[in-house]
Design a protein around this nucleic acid. Structure first.
Length: 487
RNA sequence: GGACCUGUGGUGCAGCUUGGAGUGCACGCCGGCCUGUCAAGCCGGAGGACGCGGGUUCAAAUCCCGUCAGGUCCGCCA
């Protein structure tokens, strides 16, 4: 006998259901059950495939530091105290963003790396807390089109090498505005239609109903969403829509196309003609329902987009066997803070504004678009990238709109600022999420399913017991004192 | 920072709405029998203060409050 075993905490038969807490606590037993181990093996295959493909395309794999400097933008950093320098800290990189741009300045014209990224932020089903990996890449003298071409080739290689699914290039594109208007989100799941319908200029413009008339004079929008077969959904479901609308400072109403006649909170308040024009606009038929939301554009879209996604899932409209890639382009460069009214960067402050310096100087900040793009697949944001702003003068102008003086760039991003004074090439890049790609390929709803030893939702490692207290000696070594939070 | 869902023998669940003896299902475990195996079959058995603390009640797994743990979402994620 080589080894013995106590009674296992859960059965290791591959099809047995086990609570996730136990699976994480006894990850080595979960691996024995098979499916997880198979996904981890496919993860290795994906890594090999990416390296082979990218190297073949002339990209150089460069490893960048794990211990680096804290950077003021983005998520909260993980900090590593220095024993040599009391009160000073390394930070784990949230992404190798600045390093890869410095590589561009250094003449490494095509860079890639399967890069570890660390962010101290709350998790989601598709967002691993703490750490995750990106297929980070950057290209000198490249346009948005060049980046799209490379990524489409990479994704085709991945899909054909890792699955029996198919995809065709070029991937379709939506502008940010189109995506939000038609699907209610900047990461639409295009495996099913069910688009939002705008009623502002049609029904809204003709009705006497005060709710609609007032909305239009306030610059708000009226939009509708068909609920297939939804006429007999419970009253509670429609009420919940109304309540969620209220929370979002909108009004949510609905029509139910009961075979016996039209019901719903909106039916009584509109003429037959108005009801039928809404029904027609929404493309609804007998036994459907129609949700109608009134309010500020982004809130209405978000509200209906959330319902669209939920309905699609409930009705099984999204074929799990399909991959629907889409580029979302033309993100706004700036957005207004809702409370202060001040302009701030909508996304990456180092993206190149479309129209360059001239548009910064002459356009309304709200109208300026960035060369900033996302790759979305099946409703999951796989990737985010941009043509970078490599011009110090354009940087200063952009930061000025966001209310920052030139010293802000110099003090917050000194290495990039300095480097960009020595002839930086124009460059562009993107960073597809490695774990997320695998998650989509493996048809997994949770990112932990493609990670060998994931943290749980609350960023705890149930297997190793991290995070954990450390000894007083260790704390003294790094010049730290723990101050418990006030109760 | 917030909302919601879940917590019942080793595992996965049902029971909770409408309070009335810890009752049930499937798997596992222990013992016995049978057997040419391949997810075996039959018989018997052990194992649970229903996450924890408080409250309401004659009576709490069940209702209320708090707390802890796990999950989903909002905020957050340049």
């Amino acid at each position: 006998m080589l080894s013995s075993a106590e009674v296992l905490p859960f059965p290791v038969e591959r099809d047995s259901e086990v609570g996730e807490e136990n699976r994480l606590r006894y990850r080595y037993l979960d691996l024995r059950r098979g499916p997880l181990a198979e996904r981890i093996a496919r993860r290795a295959r994906l890594a090999n495939l990416v390296r082979t493909h990218m190297s073949g395309r002339g990209f150089l794999e460069v490893q960048t530091p794990i211990l680096t400097a804290s950077s003021p933008e983005g998520a909260r950093d993980f900090l590593v105290p220095s024993s040599q320098y009391p009160g000073e800290f390394y930070a784990l990189p949230q992404a190798p963003q600045q390093f890869k741009q410095l590589l561009m300045v250094g003449g490494i014209d095509r860079y890639f790396q399967i890069a570890p990224c660390f962010r101290d932020e709350a998790s989601r089903a598709d967002r691993s807390p703490g750490e995750f990996y990106q297929i980070d890449l950057e290209m000198a003298f490249a346009t948005q089109e060049d980046v799209f071409g490379e990524v489409e080739q990479l994704m085709e290689a991945i899909v054909s090498g890792m699955s029996d699914k198919t995809t065709s290039t070029p991937f379709p594109r939506l502008t940010f505005t189109e995506a939000v208007d038609r699907f209610g989100t900047d990461k639409p799941d295009l495996r099913f239609g069910l688009e939002l319908v705008d009623l502002t200029g049609t029904v809204g413009g003709r009705t006497e109903l005060p709710m609609f008339a007032e909305a239009i004079s306030a610059g708000h929008v009226i939009r509708a969403l068909r609920v297939p077969g939804g006429f007999d959904r419970p009253r509670k479901w429609f009420d919940a829509f109304g309540e969620d609308a209220k929370k979002a400072a909108c009004t949510g109403t609905w029509l139910q196309l009961d075979p016996a006649g039209v019901k719903g909170s909106l039916a009584r308040r509109l003429s037959d003609e108005e009801v039928s024009s809404i029904v027609a606009a929404a493309g609804a038929g007998s036994s459907d329902a129609v949700l109608v939301a009134v309010g500020p554009r982004s809130k209405v879209s978000g509200l209906l987009g959330e319902r669209r996604q939920r309905i699609g899932r409930e009705l099984g409209m999204a074929d799990p066997g399909r991959l629907e890639f889409v580029w979302v382009v033309d993100f706004p460069m700036f957005e207004r803070d809702e409370t202060t009214g001040a302009w701030d960067f909508a996304h990456n402050p180092f993206s190149m504004p479309q129209g360059g310096l001239e548009s910064l100087q002459s356009s309304d900040p709200g109208e300026i678009l960035a060369y900033q793009y996302d790759l979305v697949c099946n409703g999951i944001e796989l990737s985010s990238g941009a043509v970078r702003n490599h011009r110090p003068d354009i940087m200063e102008a952009a930061f000025a709109i966001a209310g920052y003086g030139p010293e802000r760039i110099r003090t917050s991003f000194p290495s990039l600022w300095n480097a960009f004074h020595y002839g930086p090439p124009p460059h562009a890049g993107i960073a597809p999420g490695f774990d997320r790609i695998l998650m989509v390929l493996e048809e997994q709803a949770n990112i932990r399913e493609v990670i060998a030893f994931p943290l749980n939702q609350s960023a705890r490692d149930l297997l190793m017991g991290a995070p954990s207290p450390v000894s007083d000696v260790q704390l003294r070594d790094v010049h730290l004192k723990v101050v418990p939070p006030a109760p």
